[in-house]
Design a protein around this nucleic acid. Structure first.
Length: 559
RNA sequence: GGGCGCGUAGCGCAACGGUAGAGCAGUGGCCUUUUAAGCCAUUGGUUGCAGGUUCGAAUCCUGUCGCGCCCA
């Protein structure tokens, strides 16, 4: 019996998706073998040898009495209690280091809790068993080992192995990622560092880079803390549709999909806002949702096509109350997650203690640019003023968009410490309520940290007639192909006509908050599987259509 | 979308116009307290892809694919 030298990969004719081990008889295309590299072939041969010896390389059941951390604690406790007998443990994990030394072998396994050293001795196991381990067990394999705990000469807590077995054979070797301690600091060698491979094969990244696992533990803690904070204050967590017949609640282009049976076009939501506010009509007073939004827009270090958002709506509150709650909430989350309200982000010392700095948008822009937007009630006048100041107004932009541009260029980057920028122009805020006595300004704020927009909130518009007028106004303002032109959600207007209590609403990007708390510059570092451009299944050496294009001029020349 | 940069062995890297290298990982051997264990030997590459310049290209040029950074 020759070992299988490759795993069959197959291209399904229906959808062009490469899938392993499909029923090949149902497909018309030839199977595409995924060639294993020499290292993988060697391991496959070892796997076959194990099978020939009657050892199942992927057994159904595993046993474990202690995690690595629990095993270490068990020995320390026994030592502290002065017990004569060493604790016996059965541990399980992935082999991360193997050091054979003749008649003994040292190895380290790693589980989620910690690393633990294993000690294999020919005297204990017999020569054949030791040889089996040395020859057929590789870095990356999952193993189980039983024995008693002791300390080596250097004091490291170690399992003296009396029995061991394979739990799962690894065919593809993980990057080596050896740790060396230099002057008390851990230096990792040959670590998987290529960002593309790390994102495309996040499983390998997580397996060899423990600090990446910590990012996602922190992320989970953040979400847990936000839930607890809102739950404690009587907010109800709800789930609203992701597939929506009409998208709205934000200025963004949607992903479009289709329901076959209903023969209906649907959109992946770009925000939760309009559904959550319908719930206020339905007499819930405090609701929130944590979930995924989808925006069919550019991808950058700050943007992923799907991202996680928290939104809450709070009846009988306004944007001032929401501002205060935001300060309280982020301080709470920092206490829970970081144990402190001060942290470092990209070299900046951030202090989350309330109160945050408050900057009125008009005043802030006046100081930063010398332009008083109140003196320029239309786009043409404002654009002229910007030109006069040496700024470069975007052509054909509305007044609101010009203001937005100035905020992005001159204010946002300066808001390193937590800052609320408040009182926004009405024409870029169609769901916010105008300030009394100032119809061109709405009660809206955005929160910034580290020069980055983190959250957005307003006193919500609850006047159905005003809302309808705003929708119509938006329809007139934007050209038919403008990405921010939205269809009018008649059902939302109907809901509002039933009566919506006055309320304050809030939205915040969880990904960006996680970036702040984990000191990451890129959103891809805090999303487990960030979206990348499609490549071949093995993630490498995709040739795509480049050959055809490159040869085209030659063919043209011959013709 | 624009500018700049990167792509070499499983991984992290070197070679920057003249025969593609070393380390770790792997393979064979020695080794009973190691921890990037050590020592001896050794395998592994169509330098992302396609063209071009040149006696000669990983290296220079063009295009293309992918990624990163900056800008929009």
């Amino acid at each position: 019996m020759h070992p299988v030298a490759y795993i069959i990969m197959h291209i399904c004719p229906a959808d062009d998706i490469i899938c392993p081990r499909v029923n090949t008889s149902s497909c018309t295309r030839p199977a595409m073998p995924h060639e294993l590299n020499p290292l993988e072939k060697q391991r496959l041969e070892k796997l076959e040898r194990l099978r020939e010896m009657g050892i199942e390389p992927y057994p159904n059941r595993a046993e474990r009495t202690h995690t690595a951390a629990e095993a270490k604690a068990a020995l320390e406790a026994a030592e502290a209690a002065g017990e004569a007998e060493a604790p016996r443990v059965t541990v399980a994990g992935r082999l991360r280091a193997i050091r054979p030394m003749g008649k003994i072998t040292f190895a380290h396994i790693e589980d989620e809790s910690d690393r633990l050293q294993l000690f294999f001795q020919a005297n204990t196991l017999g020569k054949e068993r030791l040889k089996l381990f040395n020859k057929l067990f590789d870095l990356g394999d999952f193993v189980q080992a039983s024995g008693y705990l002791f300390r080596t000469r250097t004091g490291e807590i170690t399992v003296h192995v009396e029995d061991f077995r394979m739990l799962a054979k690894a065919i593809t070797p993980l990057p080596p990622a050896k740790d060396e301690v230099v002057d008390g600091k851990v230096v990792r060698h040959a670590v998987l560092a290529d960002p593309e491979t790390r994102y495309r094969q996040r499983y390998a990244d997580l397996a060899v880079n423990p600090e990446v696992r910590d990012i996602f533990r922190t992320r989970a803690k953040i979400v847990r803390a936000l839930r607890d904070f809102l739950d404690e204050r009587g907010f109800l967590e709800v789930e609203t549709p992701i597939l929506q017949p009409i998208y709205g609640g934000a200025a963004a282009r949607p992903f479009v999909t289709y329901h076959n049976q209903l023969k209906q076009q649907l959109y992946l939501r770009i925000s939760f806002e309009l559904y959550l506010k319908r719930l206020l009509v339905g007499m819930f007073e405090k609701v929130y949702e944590i979930g995924r939004d989808f925006r069919n827009e550019g991808i950058s270090f700050k943007h992923n096509p799907e991202f996680t958002q928290l939104e809450f709506y709070w009846a009988y509150a306004d944007y001032q109350k929401v501002m205060a709650l935001t300060e309280e909430m982020l301080a709470y989350v920092a206490d829970r997650v970081l144990g402190t309200r001060k942290f470092t982000w990209q070299g900046h010392e951030i202090d989350l203690n309330p109160p945050w700095r408050r900057v009125e948008l008009r005043q802030g822009l006046k100081e930063a640019t010398g332009i008083d937007i109140a003196e320029h009630p239309d786009a043409a006048s404002l654009a002229a003023a910007m030109q006069a100041q040496g700024l470069h107004p975007k052509p054909n932009a509305s007044r609101g968009k010009l203001i937005d541009q100035m905020v992005g260029d001159y204010l946002e980057p300066t808001f390193i410490q937590p800052t609320f920028l408040y009182d926004y122009p009405r024409d870029i805020s169609p769901l916010a309520k105008a300030k009394p006595g100032d119809p061109n300004t709405v009660e809206r704020f955005e929160g910034f940290i580290g020069g980055m927009e983190l959250c957005n909130a307003f006193t919500e518009l609850n006047d159905p007639l005003d809302q309808e007028a705003r929708f119509l106004e938006m329809g007139r303002t934007y050209a038919a192909d403008d990405e921010e032109r939205h269809p009018i959600d008649e059902d939302y207007l109907r809901a509002m006509r039933y009566g919506m209590p006055p309320n304050g609403g809030f939205g915040m990007g969880i990904d960006r908050l996680t970036m702040l708390f984990t000191d990451k510059h890129s959103i891809r570092e805090v999303i487990l599987f960030p979206h990348l451009r499609e490549r071949s299944a093995d993630g490498k050496a995709a040739t795509n259509g480049s050959e055809g294009k490159a040869s085209a001029p030659e063919e043209g020349g011959e013709a």
